[in-house]
Amino acid sequence: KDKDLLKGLDQEQANEVIAVLQMHNIEANKIDSGKLGYSITVAEPDFTAAVYWIK
């Protein structure tokens, strides 16, 4: 199951987060929520590491 990592990002921010996570071998998903911006989700086992790397 995926957990929400970040919400309300613009496309550039979302792409930067995806890139950082991929560099650390964390699979992440970018979801277009329309006017609400983009959300990033990661698998539950990767959540703690993902939070660490996006600081």
Rank of each mutant, 00 (worst) to 15 (best):
K1Q: 11
K1V: 09
K1N: 10
D2N: 12
D2M: 15
D2V: 14
D2Q: 15
D2H: 15
K3A: 06
K3C: 15
K3H: 07
K3V: 14
K3N: 04
K3T: 08
D4M: 15
D4R: 14
D4Q: 15
L5S: 01
L5P: 02
L5G: 02
L5A: 01
L6Y: 06
L6A: 06
K7T: 13
K7L: 09
K7V: 12
K7D: 07
G8V: 03
G8N: 09
L9H: 01
L9D: 01
D10Q: 05
D10L: 07
D10V: 04
D10A: 07
D10Y: 05
D10T: 15
Q11N: 14
Q11A: 13
Q11T: 08
Q11F: 14
Q11I: 13
E12G: 08
E12S: 09
E12T: 10
Q13H: 09
Q13P: 02
Q13R: 11
Q13Y: 08
Q13D: 04
A14K: 01
A14R: 02
E16R: 14
E16Y: 15
E16C: 15
E16T: 11
E16Q: 13
E16D: 09
V17S: 02
V17K: 01
V17I: 14
I18N: 00
I18T: 03
I18C: 07
A19F: 12
V20T: 08
V20H: 15
V20I: 14
V20N: 05
V20A: 07
L21W: 01
L21Y: 00
L21D: 01
L21P: 00
L21V: 01
Q22A: 14
Q22K: 14
Q22S: 10
Q22T: 08
Q22L: 13
Q22G: 07
H24I: 05
H24V: 04
H24S: 01
H24D: 01
N25M: 07
N25V: 03
N25A: 07
E27R: 14
E27S: 14
E27H: 15
A28E: 00
A28I: 05
A28H: 04
N29D: 07
N29L: 10
N29G: 05
N29S: 10
N29Q: 12
K30R: 08
K30F: 08
K30S: 07
K30P: 03
K30L: 14
I31Y: 07
I31N: 07
I31M: 05
I31W: 09
S33I: 08
S33Y: 15
S33H: 15
S33R: 15
G34A: 04
G34I: 03
K35I: 12
K35R: 10
K35C: 13
K35P: 14
K35W: 09
L36I: 06
L36R: 08
L36Y: 12
L36P: 04
G37N: 03
G37L: 07
G37K: 06
G37S: 05
G37I: 05
Y38L: 04
Y38K: 00
Y38V: 07
S39F: 11
S39P: 00
S39L: 11
I40N: 00
T41V: 10
T41I: 08
V42H: 01
V42T: 01
V42A: 01
A43T: 06
A43P: 08
A43I: 03
A43F: 07
A43Q: 07
E44T: 07
E44R: 06
E44Q: 05
P45L: 13
P45H: 15
D46L: 08
D46H: 07
F47M: 04
F47E: 02
F47W: 13
T48F: 13
T48Q: 13
T48R: 12
A50G: 03
A50L: 04
V51W: 13
V51N: 09
V51M: 14
V51F: 08
Y52L: 06
Y52M: 12
Y52N: 09
W53N: 00
I54A: 05
I54F: 04
I54C: 05
I54M: 05
K55E: 13
K55S: 12
K55V: 12
